[in-house]
Amino acid sequence: MAVSSSRSAVRRSPAPTYAHYRQYKQQRVRRNLVVWAVVFGAVTWAVWSSGFGLLTLFNGLSESYSFIVTDALPPKLESVPDYLGPTLETLYMSVVGLVISVVISVPIGILGARNTTVHRVVSYLAKSIAGIARAAPSLVITVFFVAVFGVGPLAGTLALGLGGVGILGKVYADAIEEIDAAQIEGVRSTGASWLQILGQGVWPQFKPAFMTWTQYRFERNVRGGAVIGLVGGGGLGFSLISAINLYQFRDAMTIILMIFVMVMVIELATRALRRRAI
């Protein structure tokens, strides 16, 4: 057929043949082989050495199911009022922890972002602090705060606050870096000071990301606040571990359900508030 002759006058590489096709296929297989070998090797090793197979999975799930049905259900609804205090405490912890995170993360974000920092070294330092905080799970931080402040909500609150810096510091810095430079230039050209630039040029563009991530972190805090008590950080987690230590499984189930309800209510509420407040 003559269709091609006129069109393909400018052809940089030779027409591919079946050999090329094979070569192409083999290259793809070879590339993926390494990855799949690593993944497959790691999974086989882990499954084999932990002795955890499909059977264990289904046994475990069915045992848990029968345990829940026989020992932990129905939840003791009459003890719900007893746990309202700890529920509120969890909320207080989440809120104060969030404020601590934001107060620390905003400067870290501003100083960490390349376009608003005062010096490259400062930016690097700020980002490193966030990086370290991110690599430390909140529960690990809690262990140290409990050692200093003793068992109770204060340790948990501080751990939540510090734990949030890892994420918020990073995402604030990233969000500020993505800001349109022209608008900052515009404000700067009016002879504004650094603080004025931040207020007039940076904040309006940063605000949406700030709200989104802060809200996200608040939701995480509520979940985190519920478990941080497991290592002595106060709140519902502390009630949960106390109930379990006394083998009061139906109380434990009540608390778990309350955690679930609290998480859901908070998520719905923050979303509704956000739509209203912005």
Binding site: E63, S64, D71, A72, L139, L230, L240, I259, F260, V263
Partner: peptide
Amino acid sequence: RAVPALIWAFLFIMAV
């Protein structure tokens, strides 16, 4: 998703 991972861990510890 709404039940934190550690709480799940607790449930399973109680069971297994």
